[in-house]
Design a protein around this nucleic acid. Structure first.
Lengths: 219, 219
DNA sequence: TAGATTGTTAATCGATTAACAATC
DNA sequence: TAGATTGTTAATCGATTAACAATC
């Protein structure tokens, strides 16, 4: 297909298109980029560009074949085969994620769960047995786990991050609202729930008050 | 201060800076933009630009006063005063978020929780009593709730979204992996856990294989 | 003073949007 | 055919980075 390289922005829009396509009634044979754009609230040219990077292309007048489009977007988002990931920190958030059913659509498979609390070890959550943190290295290596989800309390985050790095994990999705010093060879993406909700809630993109302070001094 | 308008990108970086500043040892009097940039893995000019939009400014040679910087960033991220939000769908993810302690730092306050399951009604989770969904409108209006977090199963998402809109909520953070047709006057931001982990896990930003298909046909 | 660091102006880069030609 | 829709090329817009002057 010799796709142009996909921007992260495009990649983030594709799942939205996919959700919309899945929401269409049973045997809808075709969709137009215009239709998708309106449904998800984006520019139609942008949708067309995004789809051009993924699909075989549509037909003037008719649009894209729904089934093929779904297949192509899913194929792209699952590219490279199944991914096995571990969750570190089986508190409420970690447990909720472990039991979240949505990962399989993207060919993501929870393959291990760890917690430092001995009381949790041995329990099965989300289809995996919770293991003590000190088994991380052996277990991750044995099971080919290269992605870690970090759902420990902030104070434990750096230790857990280092442990994951030591276990050979390449990519970490960090939910702990804490600064991590990032070990070499590891990519960390921070997901800060509170900050995200805050930025979303307040309409901060608008600039602030315009009180002139050209003269420098106050009071 | 007559701030330039802040881009969403800047807003998303500020919490990272804040986490780093909080991680500094006790009485660190000054930080430089260079130092912050290196810690969070960004360009130092970018950090300086971001900080210029928020703070009173730093001093050549010394950098920024740590305490003031923390105060200014926090002030900006809490701008407009406390925000009261509701969680709709008190399953595992909803409950985990309800009990997540991190919201108060951003002056976000869980003010209500709703679920259609009568068995959950009356239970207290995260400091609020779970209410039946049909009390949404009255309760949200009475309590000035204008932000909703949607953690219901995909099949229930549209109904819950419409209910929140009917209750006067302006902003919805949707965790359900489903297409929502967005009621007028409401902003919806979709948070797709699985898609996010998928995009993060696979290094999809690289373009795909370069097999030439100039001739169009396959075999 | 010398040099580290800020803040700003200009250059680059990338992403979005507009204009238009191609096609079914 | 006429017109809706695709796909592409060009224009615009915004964000990041580089270069540099100001300052403590």
């Amino acid at each position: 297909m010799a796709q142009a390289k996909l921007s992260v922005n495009t990649l983030r829009r594709l799942p939205q298109y996919l959700n919309y396509l899945h929401s269409l009634p049973g045997g809808t044979p075709h969709v137009s980029a215009t239709q998708i754009a309106e449904a998800v609230g984006l520019n139609d040219v942008q949708v067309r560009k995004d789809l051009a990077a993924v699909s075989q292309g549509g037909r003037p007048r008719t649009g894209y074949e729904t089934g093929l489009l779904v297949r192509d977007i899913e194929a792209l988002l699952r590219l490279g085969g199944p991914v096995r990931f571990a969750i570190v920190g089986m508190g409420r958030l970690g447990s909720a994620l472990a039991q979240y059913g949505g990962f399989s659509q993207y060919d993501l498979h929870l393959a291990a769960a760890f917690d430092t609390d001995p009381a949790l070890a041995g329990w099965e959550i989300g289809g995996v047995v919770v293991r003590p943190a000190d088994e991380m290295a052996t277990h991750c290596q044995k099971n080919g786990i290269r992605v870690g989800v970090l759902t420990v309390p902030p104070a434990a985050a750096q230790t857990a991050c280092d442990a994951l790095a030591g276990a050979g994990v390449e990519t970490i999705w960090n939910f702990a609202p804490a600064h991590l010093s990032i070990p070499a060879g590891v990519r960390v993406e921070n997901m800060n729930m509170a900050a995200s909700l805050g930025i979303l809630s307040r309409h901060l993109q608008q600039r602030l008050d315009d009180t002139d302070e050209r003269e420098g001094s106050s009071a």
